[in-house]
Amino acid sequence: MGLMSLINRRAPLLSIVSISFVALVLIYNYNANKDNILSASPCTTQNRQHTRNTAQLISENPFLNARVPSEKPGSASISLSTSSRKTYAHIIQETPPNAGPEQGFDLEYLDQEVQKAMETKKAAIRFLSSPIINQHNLMYLVGREQKCTNMTPEVIITVPSAWSNFEKRQKVRDGTQGKYVRAHSQNALLLFFVGLPPAGIGKNKTQKWAKLQEESEKYADVVIAYFEDKYRNILFKHLSMLQWVINFCPKAKFVLRTDDDVGVMIDSMLVSLRRHSDEWQNFILGKQRVGDAPSRREDQPRYYLSKEEYEPDIFPPFVLGGTIGYPVSTVKLLYEAARRTKSVWLDDVFITGICATAMGIPTFNERSFQFAH
């Protein structure tokens, strides 16, 4: 397969520059100019803390040693570091169609892709330089912070669950997710994320709350966060999962989010994640939706969004929350994007659609992530 066909098929160079190099190297540029940014920001303390947090992302980026194409891409060449060779393998092995045997890696035929990548880079700089408008510093009543102390899992399976869904959580433990974790005890982790019992739920609240505490102690796999556990707070639950991974298990490789009432194929999902990670630094896999419109019907409140909450008439492409897969590097970027974007309570739309679009992170409709409740 020629190099041009590879580019037309998936544009691997664009994905590398516009996602990995773009979102992370750009944070480096932002960090290098932080004094100018902070002086103009109304959130000085918050942004200084963010600068310290995001600086850690830079040291893990394998593309920092790759030289960016010069201002004349037609005559530029790329110097590839050893750490970049895995991702650039298809480029190293092939000769561009307009390059002679003695020529280097000529980028003239990639001019359009390079220009697109540079525009994405500029957009990411502007976005990450904007002030934090949402703290999203969620607290945990039961945090399970020690879970990754003696292990670095390849995958963390995070399951959002209503606090009183005792039977559904047990079904997950006995099902595909639980079996996979037990079979790969040093390489996989399963955690359920719940909130606090909402007010006014009846006289059985005390008994159910005691039952949840007993379940948490018995299985040591339930994280309880400080927010009211009701449907329109599902965004807080999603953010509590992202935040937990960043704070307590940042060296894991992948995160799989699965609802507590869906059947999943963990092995196949991981195969898809590994395959995409060979080509993309950041991405989101799931059951993709394209062209969906927000519900404006007040008589159907389950998914209702007013114009004040979300003004556009079409959502950006996103993946449904039943099953979502992403690398941990993507988790970190999505969380930072969520802190700088007006929130929409529909968590899958907000995180995998609005925030992913702002960061230039692609979503993929993956067969192994299809599900039914």
Results as ranks from 00 to 15, higher is better:
Phe127Trp: 08
Arg182Tyr: 02
Lys253Cys: 03
Gln213Val: 07
Phe105Pro: 01
Val181Lys: 05
Ile284Cys: 05
Tyr219Val: 11
Arg67Tyr: 02
Asp292Thr: 11
Ser161Trp: 04
Pro97Gln: 04
Ala199Pro: 01
Glu279Phe: 15
Gln146Met: 11
Ser18Asp: 07
Arg302Met: 11
Arg340Ala: 09
Leu64Pro: 01
Gln112Phe: 14
Lys122Gly: 01
Ser75Asp: 05
Leu189Thr: 12
Pro69Ala: 04
Arg257Gly: 00
Arg297Asn: 07
Val328Leu: 09
Glu366Ile: 15
Pro101Asn: 05
Glu308His: 14
Ser129Tyr: 05
Arg367Pro: 02
Val142His: 09
Ser75Phe: 13
Gln177Cys: 15
Lys287Trp: 10
Arg48Pro: 00
Leu24Trp: 06
Leu305His: 08
Gln56Arg: 14
Gln170Pro: 00
Glu309Val: 08
Pro301Arg: 06
Val142Phe: 10
Tyr88Ser: 01
Val25Pro: 00
Leu256Val: 14
Tyr28Cys: 07
Glu308Ser: 14
Ile58Phe: 10
Ser129Phe: 06
Pro198Tyr: 12
Arg297Met: 06
Glu311Ser: 15
Gly325Gln: 07
Val255His: 05
Val25Asp: 07
Lys211Arg: 13
Ile354Gln: 03
Glu214Thr: 15
Phe21Asp: 02
Ile37His: 11
Ser18Phe: 06
Pro250Gln: 09
Phe248Arg: 06
Cys148Val: 09
Ser39Trp: 12
Ala356Cys: 10
Glu167Ala: 15
Asp259Pro: 08
Ala40Asn: 09
Leu333Asn: 02
Ile224Thr: 06
Ile37Phe: 13
Ile354Trp: 09
